[in-house]
Computed example of a mutant assay.
Amino acid sequence: MSTVPHQPGLTPRFCFNQTALRDFLRLSRSATDDSIAQNLNNLVAPGTSTVFSPASTSSRLPRPDAQRGIESAACSAFKDRVLFPAWQSRSDVLSYCASVATSEDPSDPNLIVRQQEDARARKRVVNERLDPYSGRYFPREARTEVLAALLRNENMVENIVRARTWRVIGERCDNGGHEWEDALDSWNRHMNGNRP
Rank of each mutant, 00 (worst) to 15 (best):
E117T: 07
E181D: 11
Y96T: 09
W87L: 14
A55M: 11
R120F: 10
R13K: 12
R152I: 08
K123D: 15
V146R: 15
L147D: 06
Q67V: 13
P5I: 10
A148V: 05
R167F: 10
H178C: 00
I160C: 00
L40T: 02
N194G: 03
W180R: 02
P106H: 06
T32N: 04
T57Y: 08
P8N: 09
G170H: 04
D92W: 00
F14G: 04
D105W: 03
N110S: 14
R22Q: 15
T165R: 11
F138R: 08
Q116F: 05
A101H: 07
T11N: 02
N153T: 14
L94H: 05
R136E: 04
A183C: 08
S49P: 01
N159L: 04
T19L: 13
T144L: 02
L130G: 14
R152Y: 03
D34M: 09
N153E: 13
R29F: 06
A73K: 08
N39Y: 00
T102I: 00
R22E: 13
L130W: 00
Q67I: 07
L21T: 10
R114L: 05
A73M: 08
K123G: 06
P139G: 04
A142V: 12
S53Y: 02
S53L: 14
A77Y: 02
Y133D: 08
V4A: 09
V93W: 05
F16I: 02
Q38T: 14
R143A: 07
P46G: 12
P5K: 08
L43F: 03
P85N: 12
A20C: 01
F138E: 11
Q115S: 13
A45N: 07
W180M: 01
R114D: 04
Q18Y: 07
T102D: 14
S2P: 15
T3I: 13
P64W: 00
R136D: 06
T32P: 00
S72V: 05
A37H: 06
V125R: 11
Y133F: 13
A101S: 15
L147Y: 07
V125F: 10
R81H: 06
Q7E: 15
I70M: 00
T32A: 06
R63I: 08
S76V: 09
R122M: 13
T19C: 00
D92R: 15
N188W: 01
I112W: 00
V4K: 04
E171C: 01
Q116D: 04
R122H: 08
C97I: 09
D80F: 01
D33H: 14
N159R: 15
F16A: 01
E171L: 14
D131Q: 04
N110A: 15
D118Q: 15
R136M: 11
A31Q: 06
R60M: 13
F138S: 10
I36Y: 01
R114W: 03
R167T: 14
D108I: 11
L43I: 07
F52I: 02
E104F: 07
A86K: 04
V161N: 03
A55G: 03
V168Q: 07
D118I: 12
